[in-house]
Design a protein around this nucleic acid. Structure first.
Length: 417
RNA sequence: GGAAGGUUGGCAGAGCGGUAAUGCAGCACCUUGGAAAGGUGUCGUCGGCAACGGCGCGGGGGUUCGAUUCCCUCACCUUCCGCCA
């Protein structure tokens, strides 16, 4: 949520900043609605003040046994008027709130300006890409079974079998252990979240269509960012504990509405996938360093897995709704001869903290914290990358050194189709 | 599923129809060579340059001139009973 005070005081600055990411904030609408709010608020508060005074007088008269009929008539008149005005004011406040909830975060000054993903900037490339193997993961192993999953649930699900399932489990444990090593506290959290939580992190109200909704006002989480960040909703943190670093492995559920026909083959885009999420709650004055730290924590996984990847910085036009700065990590997918996103590391500045009310006290003043998060990493896509990059062309997938202790072997023999 | 009790500022904790005590912590200032102790103020949030005013006692609604206090409703917490694991 954008800072309304800032919006009132420096409208043009914010307008220009939002323009960079292609969001045209409606100035006329805001100004007219805010002016209405102000006049109504002043009116309501004056009436309330008047009523409070009369009520106080009322108490006095009652005590001394004087007649209160005249006062009662006065208050009745005020209340009649006040009721209507309060209703109007509430309507306007709701309207303003709805307006504000739809406004995305302002991009950081350092973010490259661009209109869409074609203008993202490659920051760094790591590892050697290979072009020898062209088979994709479904061709390499039949232990990733999407057809069987169709019977169980439908399209965009998968069943993993045998060593492939075990390899995924090894990846999960390895990633979690690595996060813990880097100072994150591990959490086990609910895989469903309520409306307040999803509003806090920014998925609601705008992106309800992307979520799976259960009966009973609960949604399946699209990422562990939601429960992990909301651990601190309505909490006061101690400044000396910042940054707070937490992690969790959870399945993630996404409706993928609007992605019909896109990435329909294999594990790349599923309704359900495993992910390790890294979250930091930070002091605003070093949140960008914390983002760099989190990014390096995520990259470290790929370094250890010896997978080739690149880091790109999203331009203003491609930034997510709540983010003020985002780096994507993309891993090399030999079968597609493309880099594909495997992690997205973002600084949300105080945007989520404002919605979720995550504060700390500094020099006696209440301040909103900054929130940072990123995948460390998306397990399903990592599994594909590992299979495709490490396949020897015949029947063996090489297991990188860092995974041996988790997988229990230095190679995985596949049964070909 | 049944029953009872509870939810007050960062924390603790009173008030139970007349408009939020008090303590601890934090912050600012005074005092000091410096600190501690002590003193004064500030110490939820919104509007306002300010003076000041409004709102706020889990959420929503009602009764009342006036609600933290009474009533209804929802959520959550605690305890007990039942059922299940």
């Amino acid at each position: 949520m954008i800072d309304t005070k800032l919006l009132r005081e420096e409208f043009s600055t914010i307008k220009n900043s939002l323009m960079k990411r292609g969001f045209d904030i409606d100035q006329k609408k805001f100004e007219s609605i805010d002016a209405l709010r102000k006049s109504l608020q002043v009116e309501v508060e004056n009436l309330q003040s008047e009523r409070n005074n009369i009520s106080a007088e009322f108490g006095q008269k009652k005590k001394s046994g004087e007649s209160t009929d005249e006062l009662k008539a006065k208050v009745d008149r005020i209340n009649l008027n006040l009721g209507n005005k309060e209703e109007d004011l509430n309507k306007v406040l709701q309207e303003i709130n709805a307006f504000l909830m739809e406004i995305p975060n302002t991009p950081d000054e350092s973010v490259p300006i661009g209109k869409d993903e074609t203008e993202n900037v490659v920051i760094k490339k790591c590892g050697e890409i290979t072009t020898t193997n062209k088979l994709d993961h479904l061709e390499i192993t039949n232990d990733i079974d999407t057809e069987l999953a169709t019977k169980l649930a439908g399209a965009r699900f998968s069943v993993l079998r045998g060593d492939i399932a075990k390899l995924q489990r090894a990846l999960i444990t390895f990633m979690l252990d690595n996060a813990i090593k880097n100072g994150y506290q591990e959490y086990y959290v609910p895989f469903m979240a309520n409306v307040d939580s999803l509003t806090g992190t920014g998925q609601l109200p705008k992106f309800e269509d992307d979520l799976f909704k259960s009966s009973d006002k609960l949604f399946l989480i699209p990422t562990a960012e939601v429960p992990l960040t909301n651990l601190f909703r309505d909490e006061f943190l101690d400044e000396k504990d910042l940054p707070v670093k937490v992690t969790s492995h959870t399945p993630c559920f996404r409706s993928e509405a609007g992605s019909y026909g896109k990435d329909t083959r294999g594990l790349i885009r599923q309704h359900q996938f495993e992910k390790i999420e890294l979250v930091q709650i930070t002091n605003p004055n070093n949140s960008m360093q914390c983002l760099d730290n989190l990014l390096s924590n995520a990259c470290e996984i790929l370094d250890l897995l010896e997978l080739p990847y690149q880091i790109i910085e999203l331009c203003t036009g491609d930034l997510g709704f709540s983010s003020c700065k985002t780096y994507d990590i993309e891993v090399w997918m030999p079968s597609q001869e493309k880099y594909r996103e495997i992690s997205s590391c973002s600084n949300f500045s105080d945007f989520q903290a404002r919605r979720a009310n995550i504060k700390f006290k500094s020099a006696g003043k209440n301040q909103f914290a900054h929130t940072i998060n990123g995948s460390g990493l998306a397990v399903g896509r990592c599994l594909i990358a590992l299979i495709e990059n490490n396949f020897d062309g015949k029947d063996t997938i090489k297991i990188p050194d860092c995974l041996k202790q988790y997988f229990g072997s230095s190679s995985l023999i596949v049964k070909s189709n």
